[in-house]
């Protein structure tokens, strides 16, 4: 397996690979997003309790799932970067962080827009909303830390370390917030029952989740390519390529 993985530590190979994958991933993501969202918006019956407002699920749930998926991807990259000193892994930490932050922001905004008709207020200190807010702070911390150093390499390494620290803390934060929420249940508005989802509603949701995932991969490819170029700008292969254009 290491024989197969080893070329991936070489920036030039990763740059070419990402460049080849990017257009396919982006096209697939857009098609899947269109399919999933149009199906979810127009071709499924409304929820018997929530009416048509439940259709927000088709972006809220994918964004929320992938915001956590992005964090685990970032933490794995950070771990690889710290343990094996793989430069490409360091740069991918910085490439993933803004994507994760945007997904988290989407999950929060759509959660608020869904909460207003269901709970009657824009914001409820619900366990899931609160953990998602803290996740956003963690992402912003990684982004801010990486930009705070005059030396780009130091910034990338320190941000990787923070991502690993964050991933150890994330379960602790999540469970403490959940426990805090059950403790203060009286203050929050009663949640609606979570009925099992009907298959006719499930398929478009699954497609949308896949769309957000493929879109994340496409964005990682795009951003990682830029990061590789910026960090390798003095290497002959980058100069040769830039000279050709």
């Amino acid at each position: 397996m290491f024989k197969w993985l080893h070329p991936l530590a070489k920036p030039e190979t990763v740059y070419q690979l990402c460049g080849r994958l990017y257009p396919w991933l982006l096209t697939a993501a857009l098609l899947l997003l269109l399919l999933g969202n149009i199906w979810g918006l127009a071709f499924t019956p409304p929820d018997y309790q929530q009416g048509d407002s439940y259709r927000i699920i088709h972006i809220h749930v994918p964004a929320a799932i992938m915001s956590m998926g992005a964090y685990s991807a970032m933490a794995i990259a950070a771990f690889v970067a710290l343990v094996w000193q793989v430069k490409v892994a360091q740069w991918s930490v910085l490439a993933i962080a803004p994507i994760g932050a945007v997904y988290t922001a989407i999950a929060l905004i759509t959660g608020m827009a869904w909460g207003k008709p269901m709970w009657g207020t824009w914001w409820v200190w619900d366990a899931r909303l609160t953990s998602e807010l803290i996740l956003l702070f963690l992402y912003l911390g990684v982004i801010a830390l990486s930009g705070a150093f005059s030396d780009r390499q130091t910034g990338a390494k320190v941000a990787s370390l923070l991502a690993v620290v964050g991933v150890i803390n994330l379960p602790v934060i999540h469970f403490s917030v959940e426990w805090w929420n059950t403790l203060h249940q009286g203050a929050s508005i009663t949640k609606f029952a979570k009925p099992s989802i009907d298959p006719s509603m499930l398929w478009p949701l699954l497609i949308s989740i896949l769309a957000f995932k493929v879109l994340m991969l496409a964005l990682i490819c795009l951003r990682l390519r830029t990061a590789i170029l910026v960090n390798e700008q003095h290497r002959p292969w980058v100069r040769a390529m830039a000279g050709d254009q």
């Binding site: 927000i56 994507i99 989407i106 759509t110 827009a113 964005l219 795009l222 951003r223």
Partner: peptide, 29 residues
């Protein structure tokens, strides 16, 4: 079904943010 504001607000901001991230990343490169 009366929830137009909330549904289109969510979908609008989502597409706007995703598109902004995509364009910004492409512009950077």
């Amino acid at each position: 079904g009366g929830y137009g504001l909330f549904v289109w607000l969510s979908f609008g901001t989502t597409y706007f943010l995703l598109l902004a991230l995509l364009c910004y990343s492409q512009l950077q490169q």
